[in-house]
Amino acid sequence: MSQRKRKKAAQDMLSSQRFDKIAENFATSEVHRSSPTMEALHETLGPQTGSAICDVACGAGHLALSFAGELPARLVAVDPAPNMLASVRKLAAERGVSVETEEAYAEDLPFADGSFDLVVSRLAPHHFRDMPTAVGEMARLLRPGGRLAVIDLEGHESPEIDALNHELEMLHDPTHQRSYTLDEWIGFLQGAGLNVPVARGSQSESRTGVPIKRWCEIASSGAEAERAIRQRLAEAPSAHREALGIRQDGDEFFIPVRTCMVIGVKPLGGVR
């Protein structure tokens, strides 16, 4: 194994271990349980009755389980953190939902080509270390005409504003890799051979914004990181905060969890 691959494997292990420790936070997180963008995704996709669905980097499985009422033929949740998968099984059992779980990374999915009608991933790809490979893997799983739907943190076109956004995300969660712009996401899906009929930027996972304290609680950021985030926001130009949708009310800042949503469709020819 090359030094680069060994380093990546070690980083992946650290990320998996970190999420193992905060699995319960994600299971109870109001941001992860539901959002305006999740609602919009269901409206855009339509009913999934009889579909085979795979949720990649599923966390506690909130997105996967949101399809259960639509009577899919198969529901699969994939994540590299065992405790996250345990949370998926617990939530599924509480709701009487049948779900398969698989421990794996997005860059190496253990399923045959064309296994699913719908592959989804939400609030996770910003952790992926090799985005073209991960998107290629998710696209590979699609049957001809199948769809890949991604909701993830959105980068900003302005380098200066994007740098602020990245600094905040790294303080919030040191396993964060990068938030990509909408145009970059379109490029990833097109690069994997998908058509992209839906691409929406400047979405939000919270209608009111998440207070800094709660935002940090969900990710177990720690008191030092919370103080650094508050200081960085206080120092940042108000125009930069506004560009990221960050609202200030008195001494508190509210994070919108700014996202984009893209949906790619595998051509009926099925050849990438």
Rank of each mutant, 00 (worst) to 15 (best):
E102Q: 15
E102P: 01
E103A: 15
A104N: 06
A104R: 06
Y105R: 15
Y105I: 11
Y105C: 13
A106Q: 12
A106D: 10
A106N: 12
A106R: 12
A106S: 15
E107Q: 14
E107R: 11
E107T: 13
E107V: 09
D108W: 06
D108K: 13
L109Y: 02
L109H: 02
P110Y: 14
P110V: 15
F111Q: 02
F111M: 04
F111R: 03
F111L: 02
F111K: 04
F111I: 03
A112V: 08
A112S: 12
D113K: 15
G114A: 06
G114F: 02
S115N: 05
S115V: 07
S115Y: 05
S115I: 07
S115W: 06
F116T: 10
F116M: 12
F116G: 10
D117Q: 02
L118Q: 00
L118I: 01
L118K: 01
L118W: 01
L118S: 00
L118M: 01
V119G: 06
V119T: 06
V119N: 04
V119W: 04
V119H: 05
V119S: 03
V119F: 04
V120E: 00
S121K: 05
R122C: 01
R122D: 00
L123H: 11
L123D: 13
A124N: 06
A124E: 05
A124R: 05
A124F: 07
A124K: 06
P125K: 09
P125Q: 13
H126S: 13
H126P: 11
H126D: 09
H126F: 14
H126T: 11
H126E: 07
H127N: 08
F128Y: 15
F128P: 15
F128W: 15
F128H: 15
F128D: 14
F128S: 15
R129Y: 07
R129F: 07
R129M: 11
D130N: 13
D130I: 04
D130E: 12
D130L: 04
D130A: 08
D130C: 04
D130P: 02
M131R: 07
P132V: 07
P132C: 07
P132E: 05
P132I: 07
P132M: 06
P132Q: 08
T133G: 00
T133V: 14
A134M: 10
V135T: 05
V135S: 02
G136L: 02
G136K: 03
G136P: 03
G136F: 03
G136V: 03
E137F: 11
E137M: 10
M138D: 09
M138R: 10
M138A: 12
M138L: 12
A139I: 11
A139F: 11
R140H: 13
R140K: 14
L141K: 04
L141Q: 05
L141G: 06
L141F: 04
L141E: 03
L142N: 15
L142A: 14
R143A: 11
R143Q: 12
R143C: 08
R143M: 10
P144T: 11
P144L: 13
G145E: 08
G145N: 09
G145P: 08
G145L: 08
G146Y: 07
G146A: 10
G146F: 07
L148I: 01
L148G: 01
L148F: 01
